[in-house]
Design a protein around this nucleic acid. Structure first.
Lengths: 247, 247
DNA sequence: TTAAACGCATGATGCAGGTTAGTTTCCGTC
DNA sequence: GACGGAAACTAACCTGCATCATGCGTTTAA
């Protein structure tokens, strides 16, 4: 039950029953954090990794003046600091955004899995590379899209990820983030995110109020965002909007 | 000899003699590409990964109008598409920037290494996560630094990476990139990169002409860039400039 | 029950960086 | 030594987003 969303519908990396059992057996603890709590700090040696069961968490880097840039956002089913297993020490902080429930997996257990089940280790490797692919999409977003495109791209991505986790119907989903969070994701100011949201609303592309996102025009939003979900490696993404669906 | 720079001086992941031998034995082919050649395209299934021996290569995403965003740049010693082993298909293009010599490693060989040498697979995993850590630093760069900071940050990072590969003395290094390349890395226009380079020159921080970078004021440049090399996981980075060296 | 804090909304103003349109310098090659 | 093509560099203009400020409704906590 803890792993039902882990790698769900991920191309070529979905977990077998025995693999899920092995990971569930490796869990040492399940706990809940309040909202906006720091879970791990950059530079601190880690001996466990964290599987997110419920809530939203983030990974971020702060600049000298305290301005924050999120480098990743995580939803239920994400193994959010699995990369701490090979790296041992992280280069960023990890925190909750909402109240969040997590399962803890000791690195010693992952090490054992490496010896016992090479195929499963490869799937965990895959999971960390999926995060890297998302990093790359974020780089494109920050480097080449304007403010409206960035927010639209994030909303398309989030819809796709939550859809694949069974948490979006493809158009509507709960998202307990503030406009300030969006700003820290998209490299903008809160003020400007507010203007962008109004614009998306006025163009009848998307609504976002009281923690609910409603995509009115999936194709239009994807076009505005130049969004193509290929980088999410979802098994069947044909139901998801995309700028162009090649082949 | 092909692996002398691979994971060199990387914290806790340097290769043992037998591990290097295993990887060298896995190389199926060594070849050279001309400058600005596409080596792999997004969406294309791959059965080999590529170890860069000489030259500079890039990974990038293009937008609808052809504007390009580099998501990674690679120097000798980098295993530049090792992530293609678990992922099988890439989400971005791979190309040379200069003439480049590469060694090809079939995925079947990596698979075999997984069964034989779990420790070595973990180091290869580490190598892909190092790329992800660099992605995160690039996200910070694009999201929170101004144009001058971005270019300064890239130059500090490149100095550190080349230093760790034995290709920079810590202040001066060869870098056969154009200002247009810098623009595609930093999410700027070539015109603006040119302005920034002049500014760095006038502030006596850094020179870049005829493919040679000379850092005049390492501490000043690092400060302008808010650069801290921790994310590069270099064994001993104490000789590298940094904004603040904690502890 | 009030006040403080937070999230959202909107307006005015300024500047960093984009855009367009060049010129200049440095190549290699015929 | 003339030609062509890239890369580097410059200048004039314009705009998207940051910055600063203010108000308002709603939640939190004292």
């Amino acid at each position: 039950m803890f792993t039902e969303r882990l790698l769900r519908d991920k191309r070529g990396a979905s977990l077998e029953v025995n693999e899920r059992a092995r990971i569930e057996g490796a869990i040492s603890e399940v706990k809940t954090f309040g909202p906006r709590k720091i879970v791990a700090r950059a530079g601190e040696p880690l001996t466990n990794s964290t599987l997110l069961l419920e809530g939203i968490m983030s990974r971020y880097l702060d600049d000298r003046t305290g301005l924050r840039q999120l480098v990743a956002i995580h939803f239920p089913g994400d193994f959010l600091d699995l990369h701490a297993f090979p790296l041992k020490v992280l280069d960023h902080d990890v925190a909750t955004l909402t109240t969040a429930t997590v399962a803890t997996v000791p690195h010693a257990e992952i090490e054992a899995i490496g010896d016992e089940m090479p195929q499963l280790i490869r799937k965990l490797w895959f999971a960390t590379l999926l995060d890297a692919a998302i990093h790359r999409a974020w780089l494109f977003r920050l480097g080449r899209l304007d403010a409206t495109g960035r927010v639209a791209h994030f909303l398309c991505e989030t819809n796709a990820r939550l859809f694949s986790a069974g948490l979006s119907d493809g158009r509507r989903f709960a998202l307990a983030l503030t406009q300030a969070d969006l700003a820290e994701i998209c490299g903008l100011t809160t003020v400007h995110v507010n203007r962008v949201m109004r614009q998306l609303r006025e163009e009848q592309l998307c609504l976002f109020r009281s923690s609910l996102v409603e995509i009115l025009d999936p194709a239009g939003l994807a076009a505005r965002a130049q969004f193509n979900p290929a980088y999410l490696y979802i098994d069947d993404d044909s139901q998801l909007p995309s700028v162009q669906r090649p082949k």
